[in-house]
Simulated assay, not measured.
Amino acid sequence: AAGIAIGLRRRTPGLRREEVAMIAGVGTTWYTWLEQGREVRPSVEVLTALAEALRLDAAEKQHLFILADRQQPERRAVAPEKVDGPLLHMLQSLVLQPAYVVGRRWDVLAWNPAAVAVFGDYGLLEGDARNIVHMVFTSPHHRHLLVDWEQLARTVLASF
């Protein structure tokens, strides 16, 4: 489940110490010291990486942070992305050039009439359907527009 190739037969199920350390991005020796209760002070980022590597649920993660005497980071609410006026003005001034603006998740946030003429009206799409990566892999309409779909799909995925 962790994506690690299993070579030899294991005597016990689960991840080995070296594998947990690798997934969490920490050294095996340091992780061993942490397991042994030695005087190491893991950062909040390392504790978060360990919680993800071990796939801890919320209660287990909270317990890990209590044991480490660290404050668990609060989940920040992410404000909806928007395109400011000057960028919108520039986008609309590109009369003959199809153009759109994408956000941090590659969602199409704004577009001009030329983009509507070439790619279709993004205003008719909602949620994931307005995401570039989603469109490349699931929209037959957009796939038809792409001359070399396979190469572009690889590039989009690698860039994402």
Rank of each mutant, 00 (worst) to 15 (best):
A51Q: 01
R76T: 15
I23F: 02
W30A: 09
A49S: 15
K82R: 13
N112C: 13
A49K: 14
R38W: 02
D148H: 11
T32L: 10
S43I: 06
L145K: 12
A114C: 07
L145I: 07
G14R: 05
L125E: 05
M90R: 13
T155Q: 04
Q151D: 07
R154Y: 01
G37A: 03
D121Q: 06
G120I: 11
D107R: 10
L125F: 03
M135K: 09
P73S: 03
S43A: 02
Q72S: 07
R9E: 11
I6H: 10
I6S: 11
G25S: 11
R38F: 00
W149M: 05
T12D: 01
R104K: 15
V136A: 12
V147M: 07
R76Y: 00
P42W: 02
H89C: 05
E35P: 04
A158N: 13
N112R: 10
S43F: 01
W33G: 08
T29V: 15
P98M: 05
A117E: 09
V20S: 03
R38Q: 05
A59M: 12
N112H: 09
E35L: 00
L54N: 12
H144I: 01
L125P: 06
A153P: 14
R9N: 07
R104E: 06
M22C: 01
T12W: 01
I6V: 13
L67H: 09
R143N: 01
L88G: 13
L54H: 06
H144Y: 06
V26I: 15
V116H: 01
L94W: 13
L109P: 12
H63I: 08
A117T: 12
Q62N: 09
A110D: 04
E39M: 00
G7M: 02
S93N: 12
L152V: 14
L50R: 09
L88C: 14
L96I: 04
L87A: 12
H134T: 07
R104T: 13
E126I: 06
